Amino acid sequence: MGRKWRKIVLIAVVCLVLGGGVLYWLYGTGFSHGHSRLRISEGTPVQYLQGDGVVIVDEMELSLGKQSQPDGYISIYNHSEILWKKPVTIPVGEGQLIKFTQGGSAVFPAPEVIYYWLCIQRPGKHAEDDLVTYYIEAKVLGEDEDAAADKLLKLAENWEVPD
């Protein structure tokens, strides 16, 4: 009976190691398909913002996101107010720049923060899929909101979005 259990344990360990290696290969390295990435430096090595990362550049906290909504609707944060939306053309295509404020709720008030979302929409992988909205989120940390919007559009020249 002991020899049988050793074989079962050995097989389980081998499966776990191989499975972990496959998962690391698929998700733990490089640029994953289905997600966008943003080049934030030209130096050596080139630095990218991708995945769940957050980086501060020129008084903006930058992050990347994506969402799927019916009819291409773009859903911003709760307790937010859209100040304006405008169409933009960047190297990855026609998009939309949205400026909004976000404050706390009535129960948990917080100072208002200015955000910009630069959004690009792509069709889903299958005909029945909704549109996928990829966005760069810029939380403005400084006082110059116009400069933040200009810098965001400049950074977007190096944005890679899946087709």
Rank of each mutant, 00 (worst) to 15 (best):
M1W: 10
G2I: 06
K4C: 01
K4M: 06
L10G: 13
L10H: 03
V13Q: 02
L18P: 09
L18I: 15
G19I: 09
L23C: 05
L26N: 05
Y27L: 14
G30D: 15
S32M: 15
S32G: 15
H33I: 13
R37Q: 13
I40M: 08
P45E: 03
Q47K: 14
D52P: 05
D52R: 11
V54H: 08
V57L: 15
E61M: 14
S63K: 04
S63T: 07
S63Q: 03
K66W: 08
Q69S: 14
P70D: 13
P70L: 10
D71I: 08
D71Y: 12
I74F: 15
I74W: 04
I74P: 00
S75L: 12
S75P: 00
I76C: 00
N78H: 07
H79T: 03
S80R: 00
E81H: 06
I82K: 09
V88Q: 07
I90Q: 04
I90G: 00
E94M: 12
G95E: 08
Q96Y: 07
L97Q: 10
K99G: 01
T101H: 09
G103Q: 08
G103K: 09
G103R: 06
S105Y: 02
S105I: 04
V107A: 12
V107Q: 14
F108W: 10
P109D: 09
E112Y: 08
V113L: 15
I114C: 11
Y116V: 11
L118K: 07
L118G: 01
C119Y: 04
I120C: 02
I120A: 04
I120F: 06
G124S: 10
K125T: 14
A127C: 02
D130I: 02
L131H: 07
L131C: 02
T133Y: 09
T133F: 08
T133G: 02
Y135S: 09
Y135C: 08
Y135P: 00
I136N: 00
E137V: 06
E137T: 13
A138I: 07
V140F: 07
L141E: 12
E145S: 12
E145K: 14
D146V: 05
A149W: 13
D150A: 15
L152W: 06
L152C: 11
K154Y: 12
K154P: 01
K154I: 10
N158H: 13
W159D: 00
W159H: 04
E160F: 04
E160Q: 10
V161L: 02
